[in-house]
Amino acid sequence: MGRYVARRLLQMIPVFIGTTLLIFLMVHVLPGDPIRAMWGDKAADPAQVAALRHEFGLDKSLLWQYIDYMKDLFQGDFGKTFGGRQVSEEMSMAFPVTLRLAAVALTIEMIIGIGLGAWAGLKAGKAVDTGVLIFTLIVISMPVFVMGYLARFIFADELGWLPPNVQDSEDLQQLLLPGFVLAMLSLAYVARLTRTTFAENLRADYMRTAVAKGLPRRRIVGVHLLRNSLIPVITFLGTDIGTLVGGAVVTEGIFNVQGVGNLLFKALGQREGTTIVGVVTILVLVILLINLLVDLLYAVLDPRIRYV
């Protein structure tokens, strides 16, 4: 187990360097000069542009810029934006917001998704199963902005149950609406996955054994069936956490959430290389760690799996 984790952690190093280098290169081959663009339609004077280019190291070769960036990064310095703010400061504003939103969304999709899936799976072929199927189909086929505006119209404008926009991301009530919209798509997948594995595992040998042993139904479904059916769902949720932490540009935009998606979107518009690479670096780390965590969870869920 320990050796397995160590090996996985070591494998992360080349993946990490490779992805950051790729992003770095991609951001820097975009055409145009972001420094010049700061003046908008106004003329920029060349002396100042030169001074700023020098300050941000843009006058060096691309490879040197990358090496400098990585050197700073290993000392915990994410660099500065063209506007003169610390990237680490920008990220420390955006990440907690997105994390809170992701937590809300994940909770909703776990509870409702697994619940619906289990229900449909246990009643496979019945009306409930068809109902869940139709619901998930509708949700999957609906674009997120349609869902966003529709949800706001119904729950905020018409019914008045929830606030329409997020002003304060620490207020759970305000995060419910965007969290719900964000959860919807994944919720449908979770429900479908759970339903399928539930329906399959119902026919498994260990289920028959459990029934034959005379175990109460609650224990059969709640422990034996649920635990064994969760493996594909956990895999899906694991990758989904990565997506959620990466921020959701559309949802964040609709509900005024000042999160990572919004930060990335703005940074891309301004070709703010340091911010983009900084955010992506964090995201790469998060996704690598979550993948590892998910792989380790398999062993917990299924004792037959052992890591060497």
């Binding site: 926009n165 002003q167 005024n256 959430v257 000042q258």
Partner: peptide, 18 residues
């Protein structure tokens, strides 16, 4: 001065009295 990501969102908040 409240930060909005999008002028549409601000406009809906104006209509909602926020």
């Amino acid at each position: 001065l409240r930060v909005y990501t999008d002028s549409n969102t601000a406009y809906t908040d104006l209509q909602a009295g926020n």
